[in-house]
Design a protein around this nucleic acid. Sequence first.
DNA 1: TTAGCTGCCGATCGTTCGTTCGGCTCCTGC
DNA 2: GCAGGAGCCGAACGAACGATCGGCAGCTAA
Lengths: 206, 206
Amino acid sequence: MRLQFQVAVQTQDIAGRDRVDQVLHSAARLFREKGYGAASMRDIAGEVDIRPSSLYHHFPSKQHILFAICNGFQRDFNLDVLAQLSPDRAPEDAIRAAIHRHIVFSNRRWTDVLVTWRERRSLPREQQATINALRRQYRDALAVVVERGCREGVFEVPDSKLAAMAALDMVNGLVQWFKPRDERDLQLTATRYADAVIGLLRGWEG
Amino acid sequence: MRLQFQVAVQTQDIAGRDRVDQVLHSAARLFREKGYGAASMRDIAGEVDIRPSSLYHHFPSKQHILFAICNGFQRDFNLDVLAQLSPDRAPEDAIRAAIHRHIVFSNRRWTDVLVTWRERRSLPREQQATINALRRQYRDALAVVVERGCREGVFEVPDSKLAAMAALDMVNGLVQWFKPRDERDLQLTATRYADAVIGLLRGWEG
DNA sequence: TTAGCTGCCGATCGTTCGTTCGGCTCCTGC
DNA sequence: GCAGGAGCCGAACGAACGATCGGCAGCTAA
């Protein structure tokens, strides 16, 4: 009876989304609002309207929920953004496109961004390393393009790895506080920041 | 006897620093390493070699320890950095000096930087507001100088508040991961980042 | 029909946490 | 010499936490 009711609500309300996705979605929101440590399994269970013990049917522990959120986001992020940095593209175009995507994608998944950024270090060392590897992959790919731009004479920076970090810090800072008024505001700001990064890479007098 | 021994060690080892400072110092390091939630009063007490209950002789609660760390740092930070942004200084010089100080000061108190940045939101709303007000004061002061630079024609940015945020995010990103090899490395990087910010403010094609 | 799996539940375990309290020992001011 | 505060202690309290376990309903395949 209860189950039938839940299924009925489910198919109407949150259309086919299964329990695992419901848990990940609610947990991410709670982790963002209260922090990983302060959000309890009881809180998460309450959000998806099941009992705390039932959570362990889908996830072996609280940490696995956090890891699923962080790793899922970072994997999707790299799939979307890293593709912009292909080697057969002019360095300027590639970086401009990557920064733009970086901002737009991060805005679309703002909760995951904040959780991954803030709560990652609550994970065990090994799972942290998995996610850090994905982040490093992005950073290194960006640094390679910067390096290439320097060799081609379109960029001029004192240190390409430092420049990549500076650009990423600037953009990662933005996506944490920026809440666009509408889609046009988002697109405009993404383009402006892409401009800023290109300007930085061209005008960093060493 | 025990107390006399402690005093003897104290005056030799950590020269006149009293219990309150010892607690703040140890707590900050623990909050940085384990996070505010995961670092317990028992951990802090163990670090300064007293019993947990004795902590409440100096601080009314754990949150007051965190607030003392964050507020103390941000107050000192503003005293040091904000002074560089005086109105009778050329915008370029003022910002260059402020960014340089920002980086050098943050490096000197790296632990406080990370704790203030990451754990601030564990504070009650009112205490958060106190610290946020200090941060906003710095950000606004920087935006004012950027605005002045734009009117004087030395800067060209699409939005002076957005530009100030971009510059601050870049620098705040740096101070969180940057560990200089030595004093020369610190000074060099601080100067380079000051250059980068000036370059950004001059070359942000709107 | 029935064995077995999935999803869920109530009850509860053991641990850790922040905090409180009464009392002890020094040191200082009167 | 004595009152009183500062500093510290051991013991313990109540609450919250992550996680476990046995069992129950409903669905599915043999």
